[in-house]
Design a protein around this nucleic acid. Structure first.
Lengths: 193, 193
DNA sequence: GTCTATACGGCGATAGAC
DNA sequence: GTCTATCGCCGTATAGAC
């Protein structure tokens, strides 16, 4: 991992834990093991660094969703449940990248909204489409109701994931897991054929 | 409205729109119509001001949930749907207090977490209990399934609301309303008897 | 690419007159 | 309670030597 990549990785963790304004270039440099001015040899400003981190995290999220759905299983319900559980395990794992996502994807730092919103929106739509395809398969195989649109159900699925993600700052892992189990049951009862 | 109340109201709007670090005491003073040092005659620091605002917003939220459920209706489904719609209307109304809530309730500024998390958690549990009672009534009247706990279903309900709230920064009001309608249908199909 | 040294500005907060 | 003036600090960013 070269210096530029290390700056990206270390600053991501600091941003996730301490927020944008709570993370100074000095602290990033310390964590990387260089001095502050050296950062500017790789990124022309704190803002451009943050933008690069955010875009990488948005891309990671799409990959994560893709991998969570890429599983052989006898039916669509099992695929969906597996993906749901994978998301929850990620939420409670205290992974910095996950915290970064929750913290910034919908509330970027002041002044960067215009730079980031379009990118984030597009990546979320990609993730939504991946799930939509799975649900549509479930409709074709008579597992999932046709009274609702696959796209809508996919959207509701992610609403639940996001609602649960927001809880991580308040509730314990055990509570999140119980809430998640309930949310899954309501969801599946709501979409099954 | 005396000066102290005005400081509370105006700073809430600025915090909601520009974030904690993005809102300086100078800007708050300007919006109130006084000079920065005068603020310190009413609040001893920026942090204590923010804490007061947050607690007021947490209380407001409990009241909001209570009012949204306080409606005469022929059955529990109608009460729940009315409450759901009331929440969504609030989300898309671009109300600053709503934005404040979404922004800070789960990610308070650095250093204020310990001061605020317990208060927020308690207020959320109050709101949850209000909804839980309504759902329990629905179980008693055979409208809502007894296969799931009332508390769990209440929790899932709020997960959906929160997931939809997070979307307000990206999607348009029309899209939110459509997503909300789908989320409601999945939810009701999932909890009905 | 990395360093030391520094410029420049805005921040929260206070002193003290009125 | 409100003001003017100011303190002390820390932020991003740059200059220029190695």
């Amino acid at each position: 991992m070269d210096t530029k990549e290390k700056i990206l990785a270390e600053s991501m963790e600091l941003f996730a834990i301490n927020g944008y304004d709570g993370t100074s270039m000095t602290k990033i440099a310390e964590k990387v093991g260089i001095k502050k001015p050296s950062l500017y040899a790789h990124y022309k400003s704190k803002e451009t660094l943050f933008i690069d981190v955010t875009k990488a995290m948005a891309d990671n999220n799409v990959d994560f969703v893709r991998r969570s759905l890429d599983v052989q299983a006898p039916n669509v319900k099992t695929v969906l449940y597996h993906s749901f559980k994978t998301h929850i395990q990620d939420l409670i794992s205290d992974d910095a990248s996950n915290q970064f996502y929750n913290r910034f994807m919908h509330y970027p730092p002041e002044g960067l909204e215009n730079e980031l919103t379009a990118y984030v929106e597009q990546s979320e739509k990609q993730a939504n489409r991946l799930l939509e395809n799975v649900i549509a398969k479930g409709q074709a195989s008579q597992e999932v109701t046709k009274e609702l649109h696959a796209k809508s159900m996919a959207h509701t699925y992610f609403c639940l994931i996001e609602g649960l993600a927001d809880e991580t700052t308040i509730y314990t892992s055990d509570e999140i897991e119980r809430h998640a189990e309930s949310a899954w049951m309501v969801f599946w009862r709501g979409v099954r054929a």
